[in-house]
Design a protein around this nucleic acid. Structure first.
Length: 746
DNA sequence: GACCTGCTGCGGCGTG
């Protein structure tokens, strides 16, 4: 360590300094230099923004552990405690391993606490709290519920909270749950506990800071890595849909006759072309191939694997997604980490989390859904000074006189191109904010009552809303929520006004399902003999004797056991790709605006290959033919389309405004379509909407169907469900403005 | 037109 290194270094505990020496680091990273003094001071909240593997975890732990060791050595009572919260169990396990080395010889207790940790280890912490506690939000929730009266004792010595991968929490159910838990700790301890958020440099730091300390984001100290941006090599490849060799109906007839139909024969020609390109360019190196859907992950893994087999090459294409068993995923992660040349077809499971080292390139099949996730994926490539390499593969439908209007615009190519441009310019989606999170509020009300053995409405209001993170919820909404919880027998009121669990609430809180704030579908476990392969959602249409492609292998479904929720598989020659359900995300205004600009300027971005450039030209020509530069309302046969190039929230709202007037309006891709209508009808509808707008987005939400999305939404009365829906999916102001603009142009 | 994440307490049984 050089002299200049550093006043920061000299302030660390000597035991930590020795560890740094042993690593033979010649200097601290810049985020570490910046973070050490402020985290060590232990007074303010800190948000550290830096890419994966930039040393931000150490930036938090070096000073936090220094403070912890000093407090312990000075005999501080109660025993000082550092809390680390992470979104993944795997991250906690990794972290414990690293901390064990870092704290060697200090006799500092490290306690991982999640579902896979033994009860004995948890009991040990209960008997002697202190040291470092590493936990998930769900396990922390369980502590509040099961050990409510012990919270003050267990966390009495708490000095700081470090939150890993903070960006992954923001805007989600788990994010607001964690905010609420941190606040509840402060309520019990009656003091402010400094928070240290670790985050990828995504979006706007000030928004992320305001989520770290809700309402007081400006008091959070931001620390951003000054590390230079890496070079980026990107290519967008375009394909046109080509039919499979054997049509689906024909294939079904053949297989019913007992004939074996190879998967290549029922796969679209463009998908085989993409496979060939991947095979040719990725073999021999390590790569990540992201596909948007698990079905496609299985498809491409299978196609690539079979091609390797045909050419008698060693197996080097693998699968990784969230439905695979932990063992299978772990094996792939370890092989990647060991530096073996292998390509993994995967979903967002390999976007963050455990360290897998660096790969040669990233492939993305299908247009990405978010610039933020595209950037996160790119961060996995080209770490050691090499440029990051990104290949995007986008298929558009084939052109014929019957090709639908929206497909002729080639929206996939334009969306992908817009996202790459925004990525290069350094833009990405800010974290979502403004949601009510009423489902998670129901969970937190139930949990607080469990913690204290009952609570008054006023106690709940103060702990969750007035001083807590649910500040978007009004008093009237909160009262309505409690009343609805009473009606659903989640709550009952005792004679002295104390709120307790009703019989439904009791049953809910006493099941381990309660601790997670997010909902997950019920799944069947897949077995090959005694070995667990993975899990399938039970809504998949499967039956005994059926075929399945899963985990990059082909299987025959031998047995389905509904009681054990188990499916037995045996290897087979054929296989069918399973479909997994899911909800799509929301596209932001900035992306749609950039798409429009690309259409208007018509200049082919340099990163497009020939195929993509051709599709780009087709889309641009069609855009001009349809005069979309000057008008955004067009008619095709008996449907009318609105193309305002706005956010999905604006499109949702426009569709509802028209539906309210009895028009068959729907959001469809980049447009709002209105069936059985003409331009005049739609213009009249928009005029009426502008002249007589609904009083609020909440009122408009009543028109929407299927508003239940989150875990406890089913307990919300219609009015609150509408409020929640409006806060997430609608933008009335934006929609009325857009309607005005649509009417202004002819 | 999608992906991902998480989980207690207790009874029963084997082992030292």
């Amino acid at each position: 360590m050089s002299e200049a290194a550093s006043s920061s270094f000299t302030r660390l505990d000597p035991r930590i300094q020795r560890w740094i020496w042993r690593q033979q680091w010649d200097q601290l990273r810049d985020v570490q230099e910046q973070a050490i003094p402020v985290v060590l001071a232990g007074e303010r909240d800190v948000l550290i923004g830096a890419a994966t593997a930039s040393g931000k975890t150490e930036a938090a732990f070096f000073p936090a552990l220094t403070g912890l060791l000093q407090a312990r050595d000075s005999g501080h009572a109660p025993a000082p405690l550092l809390l680390y919260v992470a979104p993944l169990k795997a991250l906690i396990n990794d972290q414990v391993g690293r901390l064990e080395l870092l704290t060697e010889g200090t006799e500092l207790a490290l306690t991982p606490w999640h579902g896979d940790v033994s009860t004995s280890r948890k009991t040990r912490f209960g008997k002697k709290p202190g040291g470092v506690l590493l936990i998930t939000p769900e396990s922390l929730e369980a502590m509040f519920v099961r050990r409510g009266t012990e919270i003050a004792r267990l966390f009495g010595g708490l000095r700081q909270i470090i939150i890993d991968e903070w960006h992954a929490f923001i805007g989600t159910e788990r994010g607001i749950q964690l905010q609420s838990q941190m606040n509840r700790l402060e309520v019990v301890l009656q003091r402010r506990i400094p928070r240290v958020g670790l985050s990828a440099t995504l979006g706007d730091m000030s928004l992320a800071a305001n989520e770290l300390r809700p309402g007081e984001g400006d008091t959070v100290i931001p620390i951003v890595s000054t590390h230079g941006e890496q070079a980026l090599h990107v290519q967008l490849r375009g394909y046109e849909r080509l039919p499979p060799k054997t049509a689906p109906k024909e294939a079904e007839t053949l297989s019913r006759q007992g004939k074996d139909v190879p998967i290549e024969d029922v796969t679209h020609g463009d998908e085989l072309d993409i496979r060939d390109h991947l095979f040719k360019h990725l073999r021999g190196k390590s790569n990540l191939i992201f596909a948007n859907r698990k079905r496609d992950v299985e498809l491409y893994a299978e196609l690539l694997r079979r091609k390797s087999q045909d050419q008698r090459l060693p197996e080097e294409f693998f699968v990784h997604h969230g439905s695979l068993s932990r063992d299978l995923r772990h094996h792939v992660e370890q092989s990647l980490k060991a530096g073996k040349p292998l390509s993994v077809v995967c979903t967002s499971t390999l976007e963050m989390g455990v360290d897998i080292g660096s790969v040669a390139s990233i492939a993305q099949i299908g247009p990405p859904h978010q610039v933020a996730s595209l950037r996160q994926r790119l961060g996995r490539s080209g770490r050691r000074g090499d440029p990051a390499v990104l290949r995007l593969y986008v298929t558009e439908s084939s052109l014929s006189p019957h090709t639908p209007f929206l497909d002729r615009l080639r929206p996939g190519v334009f969306q992908a191109a817009a996202m790459v441009e925004l990525l290069v310019e350094g833009w990405c989606e800010p974290p979502p904010s403004g949601y009510l999170h009423l489902s998670t509020l129901i969970q937190q009300v139930m949990s607080l009552i469990a913690q204290y053995g009952g609570a008054s409405a006023n106690d709940l209001w103060r702990a969750l809303i007035k001083s807590g993170p649910f500040r978007q919820v009004s008093q009237a909404q909160f009262t309505a929520l409690l009343r609805a919880m009473g009606a659903a027998e989640l709550l009952v009121q005792s004679n002295d006004g104390l709120l307790l669990h009703g019989w439904v609430g009791e049953r809910l809180v006493n099941h381990y399902d309660f601790y997670a704030a997010f909902s997950a579908p019920e799944e069947y476990t897949l077995y090959h003999g005694a070995k667990v392969i993975g899990k399938l959602p039970i809504d998949s249409p499967i039956e005994t004797g059926g075929l399945l492609v899963f985990a990059g292998r082909r299987w025959l479904i031998q047995d389905i056991d509904a009681d054990r929720k188990a499916i037995s598989l045996m290897p087979s020659a054929g296989g069918i790709l399973p479909l997994f359900g899911g909800n799509a995300g929301l596209i932001r205004r900035e992306i749609r605006e950039r798409m429009r600009r690309l259409y208007i300027e018509g200049e082919v971005p340099r990163f497009l290959n020939r195929g993509a450039a051709r599709l780009f030209a087709q889309g641009g020509t069609f855009f001009r033919e349809a005069q979309l530069e000057t008008t955004s309302i067009v008619q095709e046969a008996d449907q009318t389309l609105l193309l305002p190039w706005q956010s999905d929230q604006v499109l949702n709202t426009l569709a509802l405004l028209l539906r309210r007037l009895g028009l068959a309006a729907e959001r469809e891709g980049v447009a709002v379509t209105v069936q059985k209508s003409d331009i005049d009808m739609v213009r009249q509808g928009l005029e009426h909407a502008v002249a007589h707008p609904p009083t609020s987005a909440v009122e408009l939400a009543a028109v929407a169907e299927n508003k239940i999305n989150e875990k406890y939404d089913q307990y919300l009365p219609e009015e609150l469900l509408c409020s929640e829906f409006a806060s997430r999916f609608l933008d009335l102001e934006g929609a009325l403005e857009t309607a005005g603009a649509l009417l202004a142009c002819r």
